[in-house]
Design a protein around this nucleic acid. Structure first.
Length: 366
DNA sequence: TACACGTGGTG
DNA sequence: TCACCAAGTGT
């Protein structure tokens, strides 16, 4: 009975008069979303309008970052800076230290700049206009469309990794990413309904995150099973097609862990630009293909001893092996120019990336 | 267009 | 173990 063509058609929402068989119907996805939507800290209750600042904050944090990782950061930021005006008034150093551990630190710098721009250009209210959103720092095509649709219910088609996957499977897009992005964007825009824009965008993302997953999609549970070309072909897991990736280079270096008798560690702030810009670091040699002789790079004269083992850390575009050299100094040792002594109880006020936490832990600090 | 830019989880 | 992946943007 329920497996009859008519029943399947009706269940997919594709059986309405005028709808071609095999056309993914927004109504079917929205009906699924109404039953299975995820409850997330930044989401409004069903039928309620989301706070644009909450949407903005979550969207920036969620760029290339898992929902699980974002959760506590979102809650913490919102408690500390309840509105975009509060965030704009905060010192950048505090924003960076609150962001520490979440990665992609340019996001935090742009988040802060964006908050200030919202105050300066728009009186502290996010513009309900995709083009104006796109003009703000840190907000690209995806995030502008996401805020426009989710916070303001405007007609916009955000395309993130989830939606790329869903659409590439629906239409069995053979062209590899990233070349296929324009086509996928156009297909996604053509799917977008005229009503419930925010729900539709979030439904697409929830579908990608919970049903249309990268490895083993749960096609049998999908509201768009019937119109999906990849499901029909039985090869959904092969999409999206991606261009092959190059090999990840290796870099090596040595970190100087200077520890004072009172437990303070010698730290400094990284340069304004480049990797981990403006974040706190343990002084180190440059990181290169070959390890350099460390002596010339030591921040101060001391008896440096190599600790056993090394710290391994994988960045997006290279893998790093850091030896750790430790020196113990008396409690009155002065900090060299550009450096500072920081006791472990003050680490939370520092913008310490995970790599530097690893270096400290390798030396038995904390 | 292609690369720089973090981190933690997973099959 | 390790390659891949997660609500991308800036240059």
């Amino acid at each position: 009975m329920t497996s009859s063509p008519a029943a399947r058609s009706a269940a997919s929402g594709a059986g309405k008069p005028g709808a071609k068989p095999g056309t993914p119907a927004p109504a079917a996805l929205l009906a699924w979303y109404d039953r299975h939507r995820r409850r997330l800290p930044w989401r409004a209750e069903p039928g309620r309008q989301a706070d644009p600042y909450h949407v903005f904050l979550s969207e920036i944090m969620l760029q290339q970052t898992t929902v699980k990782a974002v959760g506590p950061y979102f809650t913490g930021f919102l408690a500390r800076w309840p509105t975009v005006s509060h965030l704009a008034a905060a010192p950048l150093e505090e924003v960076l230290s609150a962001w520490a551990g979440l990665g992609y630190y340019a996001r935090a710098r742009n988040l802060h700049a964006c908050a200030q721009a919202v105050v300066a250009r728009h009186g502290g209210r996010f513009p309900d206009d995709e083009a104006a959103l796109l003009a703000l720092p840190g907000i690209g095509p995806y995030t502008a469309a996401a805020i426009a649709s989710i916070a303001f219910d405007l007609k916009a088609s955000p395309v993130d990794g989830n939606i790329e996957r869903v659409v590439s499977r629906l239409y069995r897009v053979a062209e590899p990413l990233p070349g296929a992005k324009p086509r996928i964007k156009a297909l996604a825009a053509a799917l977008t309904p005229a009503q419930r824009l925010g729900d539709f965008a979030q439904a697409m993302m929830d579908l990608g995150a919970t049903i249309c997953t990268p490895r083993s999609p749960a096609c049998s549970l999908c509201p768009w099973m019937e119109p999906c070309a990849a499901r029909a072909a039985g090869d959904a897991a092969l999409y999206p097609v991606k261009a092959p990736k190059g090999e990840k280079p290796k870099r090596e270096g040595a970190a100087f862990l200077a520890v004072r008798a009172d437990g303070a560690v010698l730290l400094r702030t990284r340069p304004d630009k480049g990797l981990l810009a403006k974040m706190t670091e343990v002084p180190s040699t440059p990181w290169g293909p070959k390890p350099e002789a460390p002596e010339a790079h030591a921040p101060l004269k001391a008896r440096w001893r190599a600790l056993p083992g090394a710290v391994e850390h994988v960045f997006t575009h290279f893998a790093l092996t850091l030896k750790v050299l430790r020196a113990d100094l008396h409690a009155t040792a002065p900090a060299p120019e550009g450096h500072r002594w920081v006791t472990p109880d003050r680490f939370d006020a520092e913008a310490l990336p995970s790599l530097m936490r690893k270096v400290l832990a390798h030396g038995g600090i904390e």
